[in-house]
Amino acid sequence: MEFRLRLKPWCCLVIATIGVVQFSMPATDRLSDQRCPDANPVAFVGRTGIRSLSKLKRAEIRQVLGVIGKLLVANNPTDLEDPGEFGDLARQVAEVKTRKELQALLVPYVLLQVKINPESRVKISPSGSEVMRDKVKLEKDVANRFLLQVDNHAGVTSTLNISAIDLSLQPPQTADWITAIVVNEDGISSKMSGQKIEYLVVELLAKESGLKEVRLVGDAGQGTQDLGFRATADLLIDVK
Protein backbone atom coordinates (compact mmCIF):
# COMPACT_ATOMS: atom_id res chain seq x y z
CA MET A 1 0.00 0.00 0.00
CA GLU A 2 1.50 3.27 -1.00
CA PHE A 3 1.90 6.01 1.46
CA ARG A 4 3.71 9.12 0.41
CA LEU A 5 2.93 12.69 1.12
CA ARG A 6 3.77 14.95 -1.73
CA LEU A 7 4.05 18.63 -1.27
CA LYS A 8 1.36 20.21 -3.27
CA PRO A 9 1.66 23.86 -4.23
CA TRP A 10 -0.65 24.37 -1.32
CA CYS A 11 1.12 27.37 -0.01
CA CYS A 12 0.33 29.26 -3.17
CA LEU A 13 -2.76 27.73 -4.65
CA VAL A 14 -4.63 27.06 -1.43
CA ILE A 15 -4.20 30.68 -0.53
CA ALA A 16 -6.17 31.60 -3.54
CA THR A 17 -8.68 28.85 -2.95
CA ILE A 18 -9.62 29.84 0.55
CA GLY A 19 -8.81 33.48 0.39
CA VAL A 20 -6.19 33.79 3.06
CA VAL A 21 -4.17 36.92 2.63
CA GLN A 22 -1.32 36.72 4.99
CA PHE A 23 1.28 34.38 6.38
CA SER A 24 3.02 35.09 9.59
CA MET A 25 5.31 32.20 10.38
CA PRO A 26 8.91 32.71 9.25
CA ALA A 27 10.23 30.40 6.60
CA THR A 28 12.15 27.37 7.70
CA ASP A 29 15.55 26.49 6.41
CA ARG A 30 14.05 23.81 4.28
CA LEU A 31 11.67 26.26 2.75
CA SER A 32 14.18 28.90 2.07
CA ASP A 33 14.82 27.77 -1.44
CA GLN A 34 11.24 26.96 -2.28
CA ARG A 35 9.02 28.99 -4.50
CA CYS A 36 6.43 29.49 -1.84
CA PRO A 37 8.13 31.40 0.95
CA ASP A 38 5.96 30.71 3.92
CA ALA A 39 4.29 27.74 5.49
CA ASN A 40 1.90 28.59 8.22
CA PRO A 41 -1.29 26.58 7.94
CA VAL A 42 -2.70 28.51 10.87
CA ALA A 43 -2.60 31.53 8.70
CA PHE A 44 -3.91 29.97 5.61
CA VAL A 45 -7.04 28.58 7.19
CA GLY A 46 -7.69 31.94 8.75
CA ARG A 47 -7.83 32.68 12.43
CA THR A 48 -11.56 32.92 12.56
CA GLY A 49 -11.84 29.25 11.75
CA ILE A 50 -10.57 28.26 15.14
CA ARG A 51 -11.84 31.16 17.17
CA SER A 52 -14.78 29.31 18.57
CA LEU A 53 -12.71 26.58 20.15
CA SER A 54 -11.54 26.59 23.71
CA LYS A 55 -8.11 27.91 24.53
CA LEU A 56 -6.76 24.41 24.93
CA LYS A 57 -8.19 23.25 21.67
CA ARG A 58 -6.96 26.31 19.83
CA ALA A 59 -3.45 25.62 21.08
CA GLU A 60 -3.76 21.99 20.18
CA ILE A 61 -5.00 22.69 16.70
CA ARG A 62 -2.36 25.32 16.07
CA GLN A 63 0.22 22.73 17.06
CA VAL A 64 -1.31 20.21 14.69
CA LEU A 65 -1.52 22.70 11.85
CA GLY A 66 2.10 23.60 12.40
CA VAL A 67 2.99 19.94 12.26
CA ILE A 68 1.03 19.43 9.08
CA GLY A 69 2.92 22.32 7.57
CA LYS A 70 6.13 20.50 8.31
CA LEU A 71 4.83 17.45 6.54
CA LEU A 72 3.87 19.42 3.51
CA VAL A 73 6.99 21.35 2.93
CA ALA A 74 9.13 18.28 3.31
CA ASN A 75 7.44 15.76 1.10
CA ASN A 76 8.41 16.38 -2.48
CA PRO A 77 8.39 20.15 -2.43
CA THR A 78 8.75 20.53 -6.16
CA ASP A 79 5.41 19.02 -7.12
CA LEU A 80 3.14 21.84 -8.16
CA GLU A 81 0.44 19.75 -9.76
CA ASP A 82 -2.15 19.15 -7.13
CA PRO A 83 -3.01 21.66 -4.46
CA GLY A 84 -5.85 19.77 -2.88
CA GLU A 85 -4.87 17.23 -0.28
CA PHE A 86 -3.17 19.23 2.37
CA GLY A 87 -5.24 22.29 1.94
CA ASP A 88 -8.29 20.16 2.53
CA LEU A 89 -6.67 18.46 5.48
CA ALA A 90 -5.63 21.70 7.12
CA ARG A 91 -9.06 23.18 6.56
CA GLN A 92 -10.73 20.12 8.06
CA VAL A 93 -8.38 20.16 11.01
CA ALA A 94 -9.26 23.76 11.67
CA GLU A 95 -12.93 22.91 11.72
CA VAL A 96 -12.89 19.97 14.09
CA LYS A 97 -15.00 20.22 17.17
CA THR A 98 -13.52 17.44 19.25
CA ARG A 99 -10.18 15.88 19.88
CA LYS A 100 -11.61 12.61 18.67
CA GLU A 101 -12.45 14.14 15.29
CA LEU A 102 -8.97 15.58 15.10
CA GLN A 103 -7.34 12.24 15.75
CA ALA A 104 -9.54 10.52 13.21
CA LEU A 105 -8.57 13.03 10.54
CA LEU A 106 -4.89 12.48 11.11
CA VAL A 107 -4.89 8.70 11.26
CA PRO A 108 -3.79 8.23 7.63
CA TYR A 109 -0.74 10.40 8.19
CA VAL A 110 0.49 8.77 11.39
CA LEU A 111 3.44 6.42 11.04
CA LEU A 112 3.75 5.49 14.71
CA GLN A 113 1.74 5.80 17.84
CA VAL A 114 3.91 6.68 20.80
CA LYS A 115 2.60 6.07 24.28
CA ILE A 116 4.46 7.22 27.33
CA ASN A 117 3.17 5.67 30.50
CA PRO A 118 3.19 7.41 33.88
CA GLU A 119 6.64 5.94 34.60
CA SER A 120 7.93 7.47 31.35
CA ARG A 121 8.26 4.11 29.66
CA VAL A 122 7.91 4.51 25.93
CA LYS A 123 5.78 2.22 23.84
CA ILE A 124 5.62 2.63 20.11
CA SER A 125 3.54 0.76 17.63
CA PRO A 126 2.80 1.04 13.94
CA SER A 127 -0.13 3.24 13.13
CA GLY A 128 -3.45 1.52 12.94
CA SER A 129 -4.09 3.13 9.60
CA GLU A 130 -4.65 0.85 6.68
CA VAL A 131 -2.12 2.66 4.49
CA MET A 132 0.62 1.87 6.98
CA ARG A 133 -0.31 -1.70 7.65
CA ASP A 134 1.49 -3.62 4.94
CA LYS A 135 4.52 -1.58 3.99
CA VAL A 136 5.61 2.01 3.90
CA LYS A 137 6.70 3.27 0.50
CA LEU A 138 9.56 5.72 0.25
CA GLU A 139 11.66 7.19 -2.50
CA LYS A 140 15.36 6.77 -2.33
CA ASP A 141 17.22 9.88 -1.20
CA VAL A 142 13.97 11.76 -0.61
CA ALA A 143 13.12 12.82 2.91
CA ASN A 144 9.64 11.64 3.77
CA ARG A 145 7.85 13.00 6.78
CA PHE A 146 5.16 11.37 8.83
CA LEU A 147 3.29 12.13 11.99
CA LEU A 148 3.99 10.65 15.40
CA GLN A 149 0.95 10.62 17.60
CA VAL A 150 2.22 11.01 21.14
CA ASP A 151 0.04 9.96 24.05
CA ASN A 152 1.97 11.35 26.98
CA HIS A 153 0.66 10.08 30.31
CA ALA A 154 3.84 11.04 32.14
CA GLY A 155 3.69 14.68 31.11
CA VAL A 156 7.38 14.52 30.31
CA THR A 157 8.96 17.29 28.27
CA SER A 158 12.10 15.51 27.19
CA THR A 159 13.21 14.92 23.62
CA LEU A 160 11.61 12.02 21.83
CA ASN A 161 14.15 9.98 19.95
CA ILE A 162 13.49 7.49 17.21
CA SER A 163 16.36 5.36 15.99
CA ALA A 164 16.51 2.88 13.12
CA ILE A 165 17.98 -0.58 13.69
CA ASP A 166 18.81 -3.11 10.99
CA LEU A 167 18.06 -6.58 12.34
CA SER A 168 19.66 -8.25 9.36
CA LEU A 169 23.08 -7.23 10.59
CA GLN A 170 25.05 -9.32 13.01
CA PRO A 171 24.61 -8.18 15.63
CA PRO A 172 21.67 -5.88 14.91
CA GLN A 173 22.88 -2.30 14.81
CA THR A 174 22.01 1.14 13.60
CA ALA A 175 20.81 0.94 10.03
CA ASP A 176 23.10 2.49 7.47
CA TRP A 177 20.55 2.50 4.66
CA ILE A 178 17.93 4.60 6.39
CA THR A 179 17.87 7.38 8.91
CA ALA A 180 15.00 8.23 11.18
CA ILE A 181 14.92 11.49 13.07
CA VAL A 182 12.30 13.31 15.00
CA VAL A 183 12.21 16.69 13.30
CA ASN A 184 13.57 19.55 15.35
CA GLU A 185 13.56 22.85 13.53
CA ASP A 186 11.85 26.20 13.54
CA GLY A 187 8.22 25.80 14.44
CA ILE A 188 8.43 22.15 15.40
CA SER A 189 10.34 20.54 18.20
CA SER A 190 11.43 17.03 18.94
CA LYS A 191 10.82 17.85 22.58
CA MET A 192 7.47 16.92 23.91
CA SER A 193 5.33 19.65 25.34
CA GLY A 194 3.91 17.61 28.19
CA GLN A 195 0.42 17.79 26.73
CA LYS A 196 -1.47 14.56 26.99
CA ILE A 197 -1.79 14.26 23.23
CA GLU A 198 0.36 15.95 20.67
CA TYR A 199 1.82 15.32 17.25
CA LEU A 200 5.46 15.36 16.32
CA VAL A 201 7.09 14.75 12.96
CA VAL A 202 9.44 11.94 12.05
CA GLU A 203 11.51 12.05 8.91
CA LEU A 204 12.67 8.90 7.13
CA LEU A 205 15.42 9.13 4.56
CA ALA A 206 16.36 5.95 2.70
CA LYS A 207 19.67 5.74 0.89
CA GLU A 208 19.17 2.35 -0.75
CA SER A 209 16.33 1.03 -2.84
CA GLY A 210 14.49 -2.25 -2.50
CA LEU A 211 12.24 -4.01 -0.02
CA LYS A 212 13.73 -3.73 3.43
CA GLU A 213 12.77 -3.99 7.04
CA VAL A 214 13.67 -1.60 9.78
CA ARG A 215 13.16 -1.70 13.51
CA LEU A 216 12.30 1.72 14.84
CA VAL A 217 13.05 2.17 18.52
CA GLY A 218 11.66 4.98 20.61
CA ASP A 219 12.94 6.53 23.80
CA ALA A 220 12.19 9.63 25.79
CA GLY A 221 15.62 10.35 27.14
CA GLN A 222 15.92 7.40 29.49
CA GLY A 223 16.98 4.78 27.00
CA THR A 224 14.50 2.27 25.77
CA GLN A 225 14.04 0.31 29.03
CA ASP A 226 12.29 -2.05 26.73
CA LEU A 227 10.40 -5.03 28.02
CA GLY A 228 8.72 -7.30 25.54
CA PHE A 229 9.53 -5.13 22.55
CA ARG A 230 7.18 -2.39 23.70
CA ALA A 231 9.40 0.38 22.41
CA THR A 232 9.97 -1.13 19.00
CA ALA A 233 8.05 -1.19 15.77
CA ASP A 234 9.20 -3.32 12.88
CA LEU A 235 8.25 -1.87 9.51
CA LEU A 236 8.59 -3.14 6.00
CA ILE A 237 9.88 -0.34 3.79
CA ASP A 238 9.62 -0.38 0.02
CA VAL A 239 12.18 2.05 -1.30
CA LYS A 240 11.89 2.99 -4.94
Binding site: D166, L167, S168, G210, L211, K212, E213, R215, F229
Partner: peptide
Protein backbone atom coordinates in the same frame (compact mmCIF):
# COMPACT_ATOMS: atom_id res chain seq x y z
CA UNK B 1 13.21 -13.42 -1.15
CA UNK B 2 15.09 -10.16 -0.58
CA UNK B 3 17.87 -10.92 1.83
CA UNK B 4 17.58 -7.97 4.18
CA UNK B 5 13.93 -8.38 5.19
CA UNK B 6 14.30 -12.16 5.26
CA UNK B 7 17.17 -11.94 7.72
CA UNK B 8 15.27 -9.38 9.75
CA UNK B 9 12.34 -11.78 9.87
CA UNK B 10 14.67 -14.57 10.96
CA UNK B 11 15.97 -12.39 13.75
CA UNK B 12 12.48 -11.51 14.92
CA UNK B 13 11.49 -15.16 14.74
CA UNK B 14 14.35 -16.07 17.04
CA UNK B 15 13.25 -13.34 19.44
CA UNK B 16 9.66 -14.58 19.34
CA UNK B 17 10.68 -18.17 19.99
CA UNK B 18 12.42 -17.02 23.11
CA UNK B 19 9.29 -15.21 24.18
Amino acid sequence: VPVQPLLSHVHRLSEAMEI
